[in-house]
Structure formats: structure tokens, C-alpha cells
């Protein structure tokens, strides 16, 4: 059940937006289970301190096994393409060699929470997908505007500190739907 973020307490440092963190694991037996039925709400937060509190008790993505995802989205945006904020947008997809997921995920979400992308209201949320081979980091935004997606890519390259020749790909959600990937 979703719970809205508490108001930042006295002395806490508010964030520009409130965020919610979700978890999903691919169900083994029941393949007909809908994507949203697998989504589990973990917590929402409104301040830097609330974020660290939650971040420190959840398992680091790199320490998880199997087919699992963390989704960190602005409060009010559900982590699925059908949401009004997402349906005309897309995502940067970054494939990570095993062993990099926890560090890259933390770098990405700190840049998002700290408003380092400088693209107005464009950022919707971020996902880390733990898979059997490479792990996948993605950053979702509202529109397909190329100026915006290029600016997001530049910031991603700066904040993630990725190994050279890391593959980055931008994909509109409508294209992911057509070729039946990601959803």
C-alpha cells in the first residue's frame, strides 16, 4: 500500500520533489501476473535525511540475485509507461558489467535527488534492473525532445563515472512496446 512521504522534520533538508521507491521481482510460477501486480511499494521520502534512512536499510542492488528491479520515481508518477508522465517519453539505458550496479545506482539517484540534470520537470525516475548477465540502469524522462535527451546523457556521463566504451542507448517507451522489450 502506498504511503505519501512525511513532511521533512525540523532541521532536515527538503528535496525539490518527493520520491517513492518500489521493488519488483519476476514471479517464477505465474507468468500471467501483470507487471503492476509485481510492483511493491517500499517507502517515500521528502528530505535528504529520510532518503538516507531508507537507503541504508534496503539491500544494495548489487547484493540481490535473480531478476529484480528497484524503481525510484517522483511521488505521483507510477513506474510504468502507461502513467501520463511517462507515456510520451523514453529512457536512457546503460548496460553495466556485474559488480558495478550498487555504485552506479547510488551515483545516479544522488544526481537525480540533488537536481543535477538541469532539465526542468523532465526527469520521471530511475530503475536498476538486476539480471543474470549484465545489469541495466535506466533513467526515464517525459518527452523525446533531442536537446533534452542529449543534456541528460551528458550529465549521466559526468555523474556515473562509467568505464570507457559503456553502451548507452536511448529508447522511446512506444518503441520498447513495439519490440516487446522491457515491459
Amino acid at each position: 500500500a502506498f504511503r505519501p512521504a512525511p513532511k521533512p522534520g525540523e532541521g532536515e533538508h527538503p528535496l525539490q520533489y518527493n520520491y517513492a521507491i518500489w521493488f519488483s521481482r519476476r514471479s517464477q510460477g505465474n507468468k500471467s501476473m501483470r507487471y503492476d501486480q509485481n510492483l511493491k511499494f517500499i517507502a517515500s521520502f521528502a528530505s535528504v535525511e529520510q532518503f538516507w534512512n531508507i537507503h541504508s536499510y534496503i539491500v544494495r542492488p548489487g547484493d540481490m540475485s535473480g531478476h529484480v528491479d528497484y524503481h525510484l520515481f517522483k511521488e505521483g508518477i507510477r513506474p510504468m509507461w502507461e502513467d501520463d508522465a511517462n507515456k510520451h517519453g523514453g529512457k536512457w539505458i546503460i548496460r553495466l558489467k556485474k559488480g558495478l550496479a550498487s555504485r552506479c545506482w547510488e551515483n545516479l539517484i544522488l544526481a537525480m535527488l540533488g537536481e543535477q540534470f538541469m532539465v526542468g520537470e523532465e526527469i520521471c525516475g530511475a530503475v536498476i534492473s538486476i539480471r543474470f548477465q549484465d545489469d541495466i540502469l535506466s533513467l526515464w524522462n517525459r518527452s523525446n525532445d533531442q536537446t533534452i535527451t542529449s543534456r541528460i546523457r551528458d550529465t549521466l556521463q559526468r555523474v556515473l563515472n562509467l568505464p570507457p566504451n559503456t553502451i548507452m542507448e536511448y529508447k522511446a517507451h512506444t518503441d520498447s512496446l513495439k519490440d516487446n522489450t522491457s515491459f
Binding site: H13, V48, G114
Partner: peptide, 21 residues
């Protein structure tokens, strides 16, 4: 209005605040 911006080092610093425990 003004955006609330934090760089990485500031967020890491606040991780150690007693309020973040």
C-alpha cells in the same frame, strides 16, 4: 522558483547527520 540543488559531496555529508540515522 529556485530549485533545491545538492551536489554529491553535500548529500554524502548529510548522510552522516544524526537526523539521517
Amino acid at each position: 522558483g529556485t530549485r533545491i540543488v545538492y551536489d554529491r559531496s553535500r548529500l554524502m555529508q548529510l548522510r552522516n547527520s544524526p537526523l539521517a540515522k
